[in-house]
Design a protein around this nucleic acid. Structure first.
Lengths: 201, 201
DNA sequence: TTATAATCTAATTGT
DNA sequence: ACAATTAGATTATT
């Protein structure tokens, strides 16, 4: 087993499994508990595997491994598409679902688009319209953590899956946090330059 | 002749997401049961520019066209962009220099260019040297998903910012996938014409 | 003009 | 829920 791109860092022990290629190389590691995983990697990593020489293949390496079978929930379980969020926010009524008319049309369209994206096996990127974004942004300004009921309402009104709404708010929150960090940095920088500028005369 | 770089700016009507009027109309959404939400929206919006019917697509008319208005936030006056890389070193100079002498000159130049690009909000394009590209390509052949450790190692060796390494690999993967798609398309096209060609005589 | 660095966003994954 | 990261699309620079 070759461990060339994963190391145990003292502050950050995340294994970077988000990348498909990385996951491919460590496919066998998923069958054991993560503590055992750490031991394996550490034992391999005892002496600095991360030299450019090793990366460039100047040391003999084993051939590349095969592709994994990623988890694609939407490829085969289309009927259980909306089930995932029902039980999440403890207070939800499981019975309503009386308004299925808008959904059927969307399901067939999505299914068609999924077959078009056969080569990836990935959900087709949702392209929100300007008005959809507008509504979502307006709601976000008031409540950036909408509950399941508001999300369902928005999903119906905007003709989107509730999952898409959830993901959108997730990413929107991430974006807000990012911009907040940046503005803080700008304030610090401005304070610094303001302190330095007038002192020069 | 390809026209890939000609971009028609779609007169993006700059939706003013921060406008208080839009948010105000939805301010009361979360203080009442969600069943009443729609009625409020409808009643409030009956005579405004946004008829909620049109926004939500509830008016029965033409089937929904695909992406009537793509969202391009960077074309309008959004000023909060990624500026978190300002403090880092960005080596755009292709020359090998003794670092102590030229670093001050380079830093001032870069800082000047950054301030010029400030309101544009875009990092100056990094010009990789031939040897840098060579090393990066070599690493890419072995591992197209380098983890944080390899990226840091490369950044040190090549005297580049780690972010630049990451972006380079992202764009390199996109390029590979693009060429793969094109070759696949050519193969399919060739198979088709080979099937059709001999049959015509 | 072309190639590609940079940016943005939706989606995914592990914690 | 969040942070990191990916693909994909697009913009903008050399």
């Amino acid at each position: 087993m070759r461990v060339s791109s994963v190391s145990i860092r003292p502050a950050d022990s995340s294994l970077q499994f988000g990348a498909p290629g990385v996951a491919a190389r460590y496919l066998s590691l998923f069958t054991m508990p993560s503590s055992a995983v750490l031991r394996v990697i550490q034992s391999v990593d005892k002496k600095t595997v991360f030299t450019i020489e090793s990366i460039l293949g100047l040391e003999k390496k084993e051939p590349r491994t095969i592709n994994p079978k990623p988890h694609r929930p939407w490829t085969d379980s289309e009927t259980t598409q909306h089930q995932s969020h029902i039980g999440k926010n403890s207070h939800t009524s499981p019975e309503v679902k009386s308004k299925e008319e808008n959904i059927t049309n969307q399901v067939t369209t999505d299914s068609y688009r999924r077959t078009l994206n056969w080569y990836i096996g990935r959900r087709p990127r949702t392209a929100f319209t300007g008005t959809q974004i507008e509504i979502l942004e307006s709601v976000f300004q008031v409540n950036s953590y909408p509950g399941i009921d508001v999300r369902e309402e928005l999903a119906q009104r905007l003709e989107l899956d509730e999952d898409r709404i959830q993901i959108w708010f997730q990413n929107r929150r991430a974006k807000l946090k990012r911009s907040h960090r940046e503005s803080q940095f700008l304030m610090v920088k401005k304070a610094f330059t303001d302190l330095q500028g007038p002192a020069e005369q």
